[in-house]
Design a protein around this nucleic acid. Structure first.
Lengths: 228, 228
DNA sequence: CGCGGAGTTGATGATCTTCAAACATGGTGG
DNA sequence: CCACCATGTTTGAAGATCATCAACTCCGCG
């Protein structure tokens, strides 16, 4: 359970459906985390389940030489932190200032809950995680830097519902650790794509706002699977 | 549903627990597949669930340029083919001559089954898949060829219960497609490890039998996560 | 106004891939 | 029975890609 952090509102939010899919209601509390703040650590007890309300979260593992593999980015509407075992297998950090709603794991996942539809809904959430991990696998396997970056942009574009301007919450380093590349390679690849006219980098200092000019070409670069 | 293949026994196997964990019984049939034979294809209806009895299975996706990413190897005792959606997201093939037991998905996963403990057991199976996918993710991210091959050997060694001689069912190409490397790199890395005295390649033509001489050193090469 | 985090760009080098050839061995057919 | 072949593996040489090291830019902020 996270500690009471400064600025959190700690409101008791009652009778809210779990992500719109679980029939049983659960009690949620709102917490706020600042940019870079840890939400939970690897190997900590997995007592809670989290939903992103605003902001963004990264979940990752650290390797002993300091390298980091980001398993997923969590955006508003996403659930994260669900585990079957008692401990978290990743560390979760707020990428930017982030608001999450937190509920006790047992309130949706308990021994006591004998409601089958709820368990099935948890199943769907876990399955979404599984599908994401599997797609991510495909991405990290045999793909080039260009393909990975294109796939990343396409994924973010889709998850943010193809906005006019794609506003990335994460820095280049995060993208690199998600894609198994270095931040320099990510930067160069983005510059290449801009030179090819496929996107425009903007947004002041950090170039974290991106205008995509050809979603179809981008998808073509990213879409390596056989048309199914 | 697989077609009746030559040599299959098509026996009705009754009242067998689902992998020893699901309380409800299900009817299973035994099927045999020959080396290289497809068990199900990507995007086919996911009507059945499979358990490996003997042999080995690979599940993968094909990319449009012929590259292949193997998502998992399934060994005796493993369940595979469980999907939430109606279609398989991978292709499954027998790596060697393989015996599987097959049951209808709905017999363990149906709308009609209102037994919560069964649903929870399915949850555990899905979660095992999720955990494997996540570990695989960590492997494919920032690791070198040496680390990947070492991790692969350690994984296989553990899953086969650390036998005296590790008998790999798969060819170098399969290993390469699992690790996101080329088969030449896998071969070279294995040779390097042999030169360093960490293992001995044997087993006739294909060198698919491996004697590990230092499991601890191998684990050290593979184990990149911070000690937790 | 200068500091500093984040990003870009360049040069160099290591690692891995690619292309190619040789090798080993189990199976097959004359 | 043995030559031959197919498959899988190993090894070598050359080349491409990406990582590393480094310099420099940009801009927001104290």
């Amino acid at each position: 359970m996270p500690e009471i952090v400064k600025g959190h509102s700690n409101v008791r939010l009652e009778r809210r459906d779990f992500h719109g899919s679980i029939g049983e209601t659960a009690f949620w509390r709102e917490f706020k985390y600042q940019r870079g703040q840890e939400i939970y650590g690897e190997a900590e007890p997995a007592d809670c389940v989290y939903e992103v309300i605003s902001g963004a979260v990264r979940t990752f593992v650290l390797l002993r030489d300091g390298r980091r593999q980001i398993g997923a980015f969590h955006l508003p509407g996403d659930i994260f932190g669900i585990e079957i075992d008692d401990a978290h297998r990743f560390t979760a950090e707020a990428i930017v200032n982030t608001t999450v709603w937190i509920t006790r794991r047992r309130s949706i996942f308990s021994e006591g809950m004998e409601n089958i539809s709820s368990t099935k809904d948890v199943l769907k959430l876990i399955t979404r995680n599984l599908h994401h991990a599997e797609s991510h696998l495909m991405l990290l396997g045999p793909q080039t830097a260009l393909e990975r970056v294109a796939a990343f942009l396409a994924e973010m574009d889709e998850r943010l519902q193809s906005p006019t301007v794609l506003i990335l919450p994460m820095i280049r380093r995060d993208i690199a650790d998600y894609l198994g590349l270095t931040l320099e390679t990510v930067s160069r690849t983005l510059s290449d794509l801009q030179r090819k006219g496929m996107l425009t980098l903007q947004g002041g200092r950090n170039h974290r706002e991106i205008v995509l000019h050809s979603r179809s070409k981008l998808a073509q670069l990213a879409l390596l699977r056989l048309t199914s």
